[in-house]
Lab assay of single mutants.
Amino acid sequence: NITNLCPFDEVFNATRFASVYAWNRKRISNCVADYSVLYNLAPFFTFKCYGVSPTKLNDLCFTNVYADSFVIRGDEVRQIAPGQTGNIADYNYKLPDDFTGCVIAWNSNKLDSKVSGNYNYLYRLFRKSNLKPFERDISTEIYQAGNKPCNGVAGFNCYFPLRSYSFRPTYGVGHQPYRVVVLSFELLHAPATVCGPKKST
């Protein structure tokens, strides 16, 4: 009989979030998941669920729940959905087409922007091929755009693959930082360890 609440607040209220290319994953298990708490945590810009209804979450049980978190800019949030393409979905964080879970995003301009520009958040701009779903690539190998090998040196047709967002508070919403948490629900042929409040007794 599990009584402890799932530590969603640790994920959502973390002081620092990860850069999207090096997104963070927390496995959540053996706890009571009260998803209604999430609705009250922040004024969400996005709370979209796929393959599951957000209002039914509190009635369900899962084997595992994974919470992935990272920062992107406002106009990239739409890429965090099944079947999307674009720089983020292709080279940084890719959801599977049959994704079961929820994408939660909110504006973090007050936390993640600086007047002089916050350069701490990076994204991958160049990659030889698209990522597979939930693949994480943290390599910093020089990207070869031409025929000549780069031998690890940046220059003509040889690019450092990561680029930094420079978040400034005066930017338009599309270029402001957004914190994203992706909850993916895993149903294996194994005992369910993460249940809503109704199912945990």
Rank of each mutant, 00 (worst) to 15 (best):
A192R: 13
Q176C: 00
S184T: 15
T55G: 14
A67V: 11
K128D: 11
A67H: 04
Q144S: 08
Y21A: 04
G196P: 13
D34I: 07
V103W: 03
A81N: 05
V37F: 15
T85G: 11
S113N: 02
L38S: 05
N92G: 04
N130T: 15
Y91W: 07
F45C: 14
R127W: 02
R78K: 14
A105I: 07
E76L: 04
Y178P: 00
Y91A: 06
T15C: 06
Y66E: 07
N118C: 03
V153Q: 15
L125N: 04
A18V: 09
L5W: 12
L57K: 08
C150T: 00
N1H: 12
P197V: 15
P133V: 05
P191S: 13
G196K: 11
G86Q: 02
C31M: 06
P54C: 07
T15N: 11
D59Q: 14
R25E: 01
Y159H: 05
G74Q: 04
V20T: 04
Y178H: 12
A22Y: 09
C150H: 01
A145T: 05
K128T: 12
F167Q: 00
G155W: 05
F17W: 15
F185N: 05
Y178D: 01
L111D: 11
A81Q: 09
V20H: 00
C195S: 08
H189E: 15
C61G: 07
S69V: 04
F126R: 03
L57R: 07
R16C: 11
Y159P: 01
K26C: 07
F44Q: 15
V65E: 02
T63C: 08
Y171F: 05
T46F: 10
N40F: 09
C150G: 00
P133S: 07
S164V: 04
A18H: 11
Y159V: 01
C61A: 07
K114A: 10
C195K: 08
S184E: 07
P161N: 04
V52E: 06
N151Y: 11
K128H: 14
G146V: 02
P7V: 10
L162C: 03
T193G: 13
N130G: 10
F62C: 07
T100W: 09
R73E: 04
R136C: 05
I138H: 08
W106S: 04
R78V: 10
F70C: 00
K132S: 11
R124K: 03
N120L: 09
L162M: 07
P197Y: 15
N13Q: 10
Y91T: 04
Q79H: 05
Y50C: 02
K132L: 12
A18R: 07
L57Y: 08
V71K: 02
D9P: 09
I80W: 02
